[in-house]
């Protein structure tokens, strides 16, 4: 038991690693903001493409969502980070993460938006159009708010996944939370920093996970 505590819950080591992890957490937060915002905006455009009446818009965006939902995000990340330099395109780790996750997240968010947009009755579009609102105005003021409300639990649970995915950035040595924790582990030969990182993620994500469950229960009721 003692050895277990020493190996995983060593407070002295945790204390020492804390500042490093805090710095990593800051990077993780920056990544999250970039990746979530881009995913939310990109996903909306992809979803609108998915629902377009024009075939030459619809099909490419459907292929886009399917391909990037089929590829593991880590594969995308490695491809962009270590593959593109072969073609003379060098990207920083941060940029690589943002691009890889934009491709991945926008596909996932697009699926959520699509379900939401379909759930809004056609009459809402017609009512908005009949009062002289343009397509864009109808979308922004009338349809989108209802669509988002209808799929809020899915948007939220997808966002939880996006935050968790940022940990993959550690694989290409971007010094976010998990990378910092693993650095501390390799220096101390002790897993406590990793456990501390897990606690960071829990503090950040547990409330969101609870909220998702809460929404789902309310929708089911």
């Amino acid at each position: 038991m003692d050895i277990f505590l020493d190996q995983f819950f060593n407070l002295a080591i945790m204390q020492k690693a804390f500042p490093l992890l805090l710095k990593g957490a800051w990077m993780t937060l920056q990544l999250c903001v970039a990746v979530i915002l881009l995913g939310l905006v990109g996903g909306l455009f992809v979803a609108l493409g998915n629902l377009s009446p024009r075939r030459w818009v619809r099909w490419p965006t459907i292929v886009y969502t399917d391909v990037f939902r089929a590829l593991p995000p880590l594969v995308l990340l490695i491809f962009i980070y270590s593959g593109l330099p072969f073609a003379g395109i060098k990207v920083s780790p941060f940029t690589a993460v943002v691009i890889a996750f934009l491709l991945n997240n926008s596909s996932y968010y697009a699926e959520v938006y699509r379900a939401g947009l379909i759930s809004v009755a056609k009459g809402q579009w017609e009512a908005a159009a009949s009062t002289g609102l343009s397509r864009t105005q109808s979308l922004i003021h009338v349809v989108l708010p209802q669509a988002v409300r209808n799929v809020l639990p899915d948007l939220l649970s997808n966002t939880v996944e996006v935050v968790k995915l940022t940990s993959l950035a550690s694989v290409i040595s971007l010094s976010e939370l998990l990378y910092s924790a693993d650095m501390a582990r390799s220096v101390t030969y002790n897993a406590s920093p990793l456990v501390l990182a897990a606690l960071f993620y829990l503090v950040l994500l547990w409330p969101l996970v609870r909220l998702v469950s809460h929404f789902q229960r309310r929708l089911a009721a």
């Binding site: 009755a121 009512a127 908005a128 002289g132 343009s134 009338v142």
Partner: peptide
């Protein structure tokens, strides 16, 4: 154009069978 269409619709009020008020 589509903006001509929107301007025209401003001048034509429409009331639907299903009301279609914005619920939010």
């Amino acid at each position: 154009t589509s903006s001509d269409l929107a301007r025209m619709r401003l001048q034509v009020g429409m009331v639907f069978q299903g009301f279609h008020l914005y619920p939010h």
